[in-house]
Simulated scan of single mutants.
Amino acid sequence: MPTYIIERNYVDQLEISPEVAARLRPLNDAAGVRWLYSFLSLDKRRTYCLYEAVSADAIRRAAVLAGLPADVIVEVTGRISPEGVLSPI
């Protein structure tokens, strides 16, 4: 399944809890996407999320269902290590 990085920008600082994250799973399942993990910016107003999904449109559908932004969606196909080794994702 393709892998995507999603940049999400928030007006207010993001507050996340295990309960909030648990509510996202059924919405993601309904759209056919799988949230792997996210990075949170220092100011808590931006996340960079790694997802598996059949398409960028599926990620957009999941974002709408969850009421989340999906400002930039980029399909990624490889990972480069500090040693310069390219590995498929």
Rank of each mutant, 00 (worst) to 15 (best):
D12R: 13
R60V: 13
P2N: 09
I5V: 13
A70E: 04
I80H: 12
A22E: 12
L36G: 08
D43C: 08
L86F: 08
K44C: 06
F39N: 01
M1H: 11
R25I: 11
L65Y: 07
D43Y: 02
V74F: 05
L27G: 06
V33G: 10
I80V: 15
V33K: 01
G32M: 08
I5W: 01
I16Y: 00
A70M: 05
A58G: 04
I59V: 12
L36N: 13
A63N: 09
E83I: 03
V64D: 12
S41H: 00
I6W: 00
S81L: 01
G78P: 03
M1T: 11
L50P: 12
V74C: 14
R60F: 08
D29I: 08
Y4G: 14
V76W: 06
V76K: 07
L36A: 06
T3M: 06
Y37R: 11
D57Y: 02
D57G: 13
G67H: 02
G84W: 03
V85G: 10
L14F: 09
W35K: 14
Q13D: 02
I89C: 11
S41L: 00
L27F: 04
A56E: 12
V64W: 07
R79D: 09
P69D: 05
L86K: 13
L42G: 11
C49F: 02
R45Q: 00
V33W: 05
S87Y: 10
E7C: 05
D29P: 14
A66W: 01
R8L: 02
R79N: 15
E7A: 09
R79S: 10
G78D: 14
I59F: 02
E52T: 11
I6G: 11
A58Q: 01
A66T: 04
W35I: 08
I6C: 05
A31K: 05
R45H: 04
L42F: 05
E52R: 01
R34V: 13
Y37I: 08
A66L: 06
L50N: 02
Y48V: 14
V72F: 00
Y48N: 07
S55N: 05
L24A: 12
L42C: 15
Y48P: 07
R45D: 07
G32T: 09
T47D: 03
D29L: 07
L27K: 11
E7Q: 12
L68P: 13
S55R: 05
R79C: 07
R46M: 09
C49I: 07
G84R: 00
E83K: 07
E75S: 14
S17H: 02
I59W: 05
N9A: 13
P2H: 01
R45G: 03
R60S: 15
I5K: 04
R79L: 15
L42I: 14
Y51L: 10
R23V: 15
R60D: 04
G32N: 09
L42D: 14
Y51T: 10
